[in-house]
Design a protein around this nucleic acid. Structure first.
Lengths: 340, 340
DNA sequence: CTGAAAGCGCTTACAG
DNA sequence: CTGAAAGCGCTTACAG
């Protein structure tokens, strides 16, 4: 017998009907112990596995979740943002723990991706992950909601958002970092990263930073803010631009670790020492942050927790339970880059 | 109509039979242009998507590939090896390019994972990725072959291996690194990493290293080899052990970047400077290698290429074509850590 | 070029 | 506790 065994083969071998085989395998209580044992023996003998396609078709659900990872089309093609890679790892684990499979897919932000997976019944729900212009994004979220697609997204948690969002406390993170930099005596703190409603996560970090400065009575100089997307090279360029501006600064708060790492390279190229001349802090706490020189002060987003919450929330949605957006706590990780 | 539209709904709307809808959607040439247009309009109007479960069940294939990622149970739970994360990224891209979905799953090395995905018809083929004891692993590969499961694995390409393996040229990589270190005047070159047939990739790197030393007439001191698995902390410990041995060395070749990074930390903790006192080189060229201080000399494994080859080979297998194991070229990346 | 029909391998009322 | 039967939504010979 070359073609894989089916439940009918098992039924023959165990001397029962195919329906009983199915019941036994689904763990139904309506099966005699003795019968169940015979069936299990047959399953063992033939190396039988339930055909998921048939099973899913019949049950009209899939037992798999889909992860859509967005990449900003402008971003460097060759590397995926390590923060998202880390999220991917933790989401995978969380799925496995819940007995779900995970389908993953990279999407160009611009493409017409919405609901492709759920609609074609490949997944019970979708996790959305990635940076990108929120305002462009939002319309698609509305569409997902309209279609009744179950999804959760990682990102800023804002009022009046379509669907369920899980994100870390960006405002608090920015506030804490700026507070720490102020405590170290910094007064001219640059901010590297887009600070507009197009990128709400960065914007929240920026707002936290601004609030801290304000509270400390430090003037907010908008010339100290420079846009950057979350790549090393973009951070490098932004830092260069700021240095050229020649307006003086004693600290840099980068909206992500990748930006911070690029900024440190630019500082070093211009003969500025970290932390002696300029204190630097980032955001995310990717693995690299501990290994750069000097080690980077940053804000930890707990990806392990985030993955678990994302999956749990989505599964709640799938079961039809009410699910709320959730803001996860962050934690300041002080390392040498900010200690002057 | 709440439940998603089916091909029958489309048929009604377009005024044709369900069979014709299916044909039109599969791109069959046996459909009148005008009919096709009507059907497409109906599809558009109802937001219809083919049910993959039904389609796959009928076609008896899945259009998805599975990636099994192994983790050595002894490894640090919290982080996935960045090299594999990077592979994962490139495999995902390669799958997308070929129009396949990717199912991913983390597996404990010890568990009974073999063929679970393929057997339950969730995937047409499997990609195996991860470190682990090869000798323990091998039996499972044999079983996969017996079962007729289509799979490719990333790892050392050895003679008489079950199935198809894709790996980089570890021997050449080790040889090149050692040659480079010798060129820089190093004579006492330590090797950090398991050097036994349990870990064939590391072993090949070790053999390349040994061959280079031999060719240069440099004595191979086995006291300079110390086992380590591919984590930062294991590299740190191995380096410490070696330093305590107090046998003198002027260079370290670590079997992976993570090991090298741990080793550099240990060296620094013991007041040894890299590269002035000790030259250091790693293997993999993970993103971090460029960012540590000093930047790490290492051997680039091109994960983008590797992902593409892995997917292409597996798809060949799925189509029933003959597929050979393949060795991919590596490239020495010289950075400051080895320049003394 | 099109339709009627069988069947992919399950799950689950329904009847006993 | 078990079996016979319907049906999930497609794809694909078969017949026209």
């Amino acid at each position: 017998m070359k073609g894989k065994a089916t439940s009918i083969d098992i039924a023959h071998l165990a001397g029962v009907s195919q329906a009983t085989v199915s019941r036994a395998l689904r763990g139904s209580p309506l099966v005699n112990e003795e019968t169940r044992r015979r069936i299990e023996a047959a399953v063992e003998q033939l190396g039988y596995k339930v055909d998921k396609n048939a099973s899913n078709l019949r049950k009209m659900h899939t037992g798999t979740l889909a992860l859509l990872l967005f990449e900003d089309p402008t971003a460097d093609e060759s590397h995926i943002n390590p923060f998202f890679l880390s999220m991917l790892g933790s989401i995978t684990r969380a799925c496995a723990q819940q007995g779900y499979d995970l389908l993953i897919s990279f999407q160009q932000f611009s493409r017409d991706w919405h609901a492709d997976f759920a609609d074609s019944k490949k997944a019970d729900g979708i996790i959305l992950l990635g940076y990108g212009d929120y305002l462009a994004y939002r319309g698609k979220l509305d569409k997902l909601v309209d279609q009744g697609t179950r999804f959760v997204r990682w990102g800023a948690v804002l009022p009046d958002q379509p669907g369920v969002s899980i994100g870390c406390d960006n405002f608090c993170g920015g506030h804490t970092v700026a507070g720490h930099l102020l405590d170290r005596g910094c007064r001219r703190i640059a901010f590297l990263g887009d600070a507009s409603s197009h990128y709400p996560e960065f914007f929240e970090r920026y707002r936290g930073y601004s609030a801290a400065l304000e509270k400390a009575g430090v003037e907010i100089d908008t010339a100290l803010q420079e846009n950057a997307e979350s790549t090393e090279s973009s951070g490098y360029e932004a830092m260069r631009t700021l240095i050229m501006r020649d307006i003086g600064f004693d600290a840099v708060f980068a909206a992500s670790d990748l930006i911070a790492i690029g900024a440190m390279r630019a500082l070093s190229d211009h003969g500025l020492r970290v932390p002696q001349d300029v204190a630097v802090a980032g955001f995310d706490d990717i693995a690299m942050a501990s290994f750069v020189n000097p080690p980077l002060t940053t804000v930890l987003q707990d990806t392990r927790q985030a993955g678990a919450v994302l999956v749990d929330s989505l599964l709640g949605l799938v079961r039809g339970e009410p699910v709320e957006s959730e803001v996860l706590p962050v934690k300041l990780m002080v390392r040498r880059s900010s200690l002057r």
